[in-house]
């Protein structure tokens, strides 16, 4: 029993052309959390518009690149002797058919509706884009800008897609590359220490000669 409007699920399903996977959990305090996964990310705008008409508040947006699931089952199968040859394993898919290969994106829109948390999940393959929700929800502005500088994901239709926290001189998609932590946070402000280390190393080398 949630505090959501009774027509909530029906309205969202009616708005989406593709399927929706909806699960709800309620804790001991009677507070519910809804997870609503979109099969087609092109439904995002239409479903978000329904959330807007329910006066939902967009509280947070989380982006990530889900890891490919572990391939533990294979070994077991081999032990059982079921698979003799090494068969190329098919890439696992999300509920909507986005490949879960470690390069696709999962974007979760965390809404608060009738004091319950409603999480709308959209997937996008690498090099794809999602519709910007900023025209619908003003609080999407900064989170979308932040995601665009951390990942290679683009939100089309964002009214002001400037960098938010990172300087323009930094290459985009920092979360998708291995970057020395001190460089990422701009903490390595001088190379004085390295100069001293190099000078000391040279001096030692000369002494050795």
């Amino acid at each position: 029993m949630t505090r959501l409007p009774p027509e909530f699920e029906e309205t969202l399903r009616a708005a989406a052309a593709g399927d929706l996977a909806i699960t709800t959990t309620t804790d001991a305090h009677g507070v519910s959390v809804v997870w609503c996964e979109l099969a087609r990310n092109t439904d995002l705008m239409a479903v978000a518009a329904r959330m807007r008409s329910f006066d939902a508040r967009l509280a947070m947006i989380t982006a990530s690149q889900p890891k490919a699931p572990e391939e533990e089952d294979d070994e077991q199968d081999e032990e059982n002797g079921e698979t003799g040859d090494v068969v190329a394993r098919e890439t696992p898919m999300t509920f909507g058919g986005t490949p879960l290969d470690g390069t696709s994106y999962e974007v979760i829109y965390h809404f608060i509706l009738a004091d319950e948390a409603v999480n709308l999940i959209a997937h996008a393959p690498a090099n794809a884009s999602l519709a910007s929700l900023t025209p619908l929800f003003r609080p999407a502005d900064w989170p979308e800008r932040e995601i665009m500088e951390l990942y290679g994901l683009i939100f089309t239709g964002h009214p002001d897609p400037r960098r938010l926290f990172l300087d323009n001189s930094i290459e985009p998609a920092v979360f998708e590359r291995l970057i020395p932590f001190s460089t990422l946070v701009n903490a390595a402000s001088t190379d004085d220490l390295w100069k001293k280390v190099h000078a000391a190393a040279k001096a030692t080398a000369k002494e050795g000669e």
């Binding site: 509280a59 947070m60 989380t62 990530s64 889900p66 890891k67 965390h110 003003r138 609080p139 502005d141 900064w142 989170p143």
Partner: peptide, 14 residues
């Protein structure tokens, strides 16, 4: 795998 948080100041800046 992912830890994300939204602090109260974040929406309040706007």
């Amino acid at each position: 795998e992912r830890l994300k948080w939204r602090v109260p100041s974040f929406p309040n800046w706007d």
